[in-house]
């Protein structure tokens, strides 16, 4: 037993280091994205993920590489955790040819088919039916993959959410809908927008298993997600998970972190439960992490993000001929030949 416990704790330590690394990478990446935006290297809308890192890391750590992930326009963190290289994400933000969609998408539209990352989508709720369709396709093919669909809490009041959950419940589709409840849809507090405060309860309206979890606790998020994944793979049923989190920055780069719709005091209160600090403390208490090890990890991550920045900065702009590329796909001529 002692041996088994030892190997378990070794495996735990490796996993915990991965989780911490994953969260810290997102944090450092987004801090530099904010800097690049201020310098004018990133244009358009830019929605940062700072504060919510345990959601992407915790949920995605329970997935397989052949599962599918689809998300909203707040997608940098989700893309990084899914395995889109930091260089490709940063180059996309810079609007360069080496970006993950070659400069066609920008901050809100990261895609990478090599890791089944089905994109960042810009219309609130618009991607939820797409996830339902991915679940339908998995069932159609008889596979045991799952599709995870992230959304902000504001999306649950729109028709797309309800239409999707109804079909997923009706047809038992392996989709896990994850509400990242960061409390504000842009500047509107969820209490001012939803007639139901416990958003996960909406799953019950559609016979979908529901759960809620502390989104600042990466292990709790992972555990809740693992249960949903098991349901999806085993019984091919959908789940709705409400993850309680908070964003430490404005809705996008164009608004202040606090001052209008929320107070500085509220922000500071939530910052006390920073997911990275909380998990770092857990690891230190368990003897898995020293200050020196953390500092080293942080240094390596900062170097990797700097490398992504340099790569993006040196990547060329897309060639002008790319303007008309990928409007339509070629249809193979052999399928169009008359039999």
């Amino acid at each position: 037993m002692a041996t088994k416990k030892k190997s378990d704790s070794k495996a735990d330590a490796a996993l915990y280091h991965e989780l911490l690394h994953s969260m810290l990478l997102q944090r450092r990446f987004e801090e530099r994205a904010a800097e690049a935006y201020a310098l004018g290297k990133i244009g358009g809308f830019c929605h940062l993920y700072i504060g919510q890192e345990a959601v992407s890391t915790g949920t995605q750590s329970a997935l397989r590489s052949d599962d599918y992930v689809i998300t909203t326009y707040r997608d940098h963190g989700q893309a990084l955790v899914r395995g889109v290289p930091p260089r490709a994400v940063m180059a996309e933000l810079f609007g360069r040819v080496d970006g993950c969609v070659h400069g066609k998408g920008g901050s809100m539209h990261m895609f990478d088919s090599s890791v089944n990352f089905l994109g960042g989508h810009g219309i609130v709720g618009g991607h939820i039916p797409l996830a339902t369709g991915v679940g339908f396709a998995i069932k159609y093919r008889g596979g045991d993959q799952v599709c995870v669909c992230y959304m902000g809490e504001a999306a649950v009041n729109g028709g797309a959410f309800h239409e999707s959950l109804n079909m997923a419940g009706l047809w038992k589709l392996p989709v896990i809908y994850v509400i990242e409840n960061n409390k504000y849809g842009m500047g509107t507090a969820i209490e001012r927008a939803s007639s139901i405060k416990e958003l996960y309860k909406r799953g019950g309206s559609y016979s979908i298993a529901d759960a809620t979890v502390d989104g600042q606790d990466v292990l709790a998020v992972r555990e809740t997600m693992a249960e949903a994944v098991e349901r999806a793979r085993g019984e091919q049923t959908a789940s709705l998970i409400e993850v309680q989190t908070y964003r430490y920055v404005g809705h996008s780069m164009s608004d202040a972190a606090s001052g209008t719709y929320r107070t500085k005091a509220e922000l500071e209160e939530y910052e006390k439960r920073d997911p990275i600090n909380l998990f770092r403390a857990v690891m230190q208490k368990a003897g898995m992490l020293t200050d020196a090890e953390y500092a080293k990890m942080d240094e390596q991550i900062k170097a990797a993000v700097q490398d992504a920045w340099d790569f993006a900065d040196n990547s060329p702009e897309p060639p002008l001929e790319a303007l008309y590329e990928h409007v339509l796909a070629e249809t193979a001529s052999d399928v169009l030949v008359e039999a």
């Binding site: 599918y68 689809i70 089905l118 618009g126 939820i128 039916p129 797409l130 996830a131 339902t132 369709g133 991915v134 679940g135 339908f136 396709a137 998995i138 159609y140 093919r141 028709g159 797309a160 239409e163 999707s164 109804n166 079909m167 009706l170």
Partner: peptide
């Protein structure tokens, strides 16, 4: 056969097409 939910089943179709149907 779908519920009367045009937005939902049109989007379901698009999602399924993203992954090979």
């Amino acid at each position: 056969d779908t519920p009367i939910t045009e937005l939902g089943f049109a989007g379901l179709g698009v999602g399924s097409a993203m992954v090979g149907l």
